[in-house]
Computed example of a mutant assay.
Amino acid sequence: MPLLNHRRLYLKRLGYDSPPPPTLQTLQELQLRHVCTFAFESLSTLLHLPVPIDLPSVEQKVLLDGRGGYCYELNQMFLALLQELGFEARGITGRVVMGGPPDARTARTHRLSLVILDGVRYVTDVGFGGMVPSAPLQLDTQAVQATPHEPYRLTFHGEEGSYTMWVEVAGEWRGLYVFDLQVQADIDYEIGNWYVSTHPASPFVGQLKVARLAVGQRHTLNNTQYTVHYLGRPSEKCVIENQQALLELLQGTFGIQVPTPLSLHDLFVSDGAA
């Protein structure tokens, strides 16, 4: 069965001229290529704009309008591609704990996917900002797992049936999010997305968060604070001092076609930049 037009375009953006087979190698390549091609970004929530997460809207925004998105957009689009390629896959959700205690009971505000290949279960995630894993992770092991970037591992909490995703950064293991395998309905994603995109306590509302990976690098932008994280050497940080420099960074390094006209003046006022 031929791929739908948007899926064909998606694959072409990822460097494929024809649909690859549903294998582990393909899954690994797709995830790495995605996180190095499409930016995680929150321009819509910065500007207090709606973030529709129906698949046609997501594909229009990311594939046709040259934008990026966050987990409810990017992981949904990635899952649709996997399913059309013949992977056994479905969406799941998690609770973000990054920056706080790994056992915190936060809201379900993260979306990722479960993939089963030859009876082996994996989780795949292309929508977790600056610390997104660049490879799928085998679920039923607590061993350290290498990726093209940092090492990751999963721990299982049998009494709750949940897992914690960890990443090693600068010799320290940091908890990112806690998830389980509970089946999700569309309304579950809608509720989580509504909170992330509209609630005053959401870290995305009125904030600019952008990330994109490259070989051995992670590029992140938090409002006007731009950082390049390298493997094996110190990060480089700088403050973006004006709107023109910010627009050039978004378009160049992050590959985002910024909507025009767009004023980011308030971002510099709130961040104290010139």
Rank of each mutant, 00 (worst) to 15 (best):
99 G>D: 02
48 H>Q: 01
195 Y>V: 12
127 G>D: 14
50 P>E: 00
31 Q>V: 01
43 L>S: 11
155 T>H: 02
39 A>D: 03
116 I>L: 03
218 R>K: 15
110 H>I: 08
35 V>L: 10
253 T>C: 02
241 E>Y: 02
261 P>G: 03
227 T>L: 11
64 L>W: 09
195 Y>R: 07
98 M>F: 12
175 G>A: 09
50 P>F: 01
159 E>F: 14
144 V>F: 12
96 V>A: 06
165 M>V: 15
265 H>G: 09
221 L>H: 08
229 H>P: 02
259 P>G: 13
153 R>V: 13
29 E>A: 04
143 A>V: 03
218 R>Q: 15
118 D>K: 05
236 E>Y: 08
13 R>I: 07
67 R>I: 06
10 Y>V: 02
273 A>V: 13
83 Q>P: 06
198 T>P: 09
17 D>A: 11
22 P>E: 06
57 S>R: 06
236 E>P: 03
173 W>V: 13
96 V>K: 01
174 R>T: 04
124 T>M: 06
40 F>W: 00
164 T>V: 12
231 L>Y: 02
48 H>C: 03
263 S>W: 15
142 Q>E: 15
202 S>T: 11
164 T>R: 03
59 E>Q: 03
248 E>H: 04
90 R>K: 12
155 T>A: 10
64 L>D: 05
157 H>K: 13
43 L>R: 01
111 R>H: 00
28 Q>Y: 00
71 C>S: 12
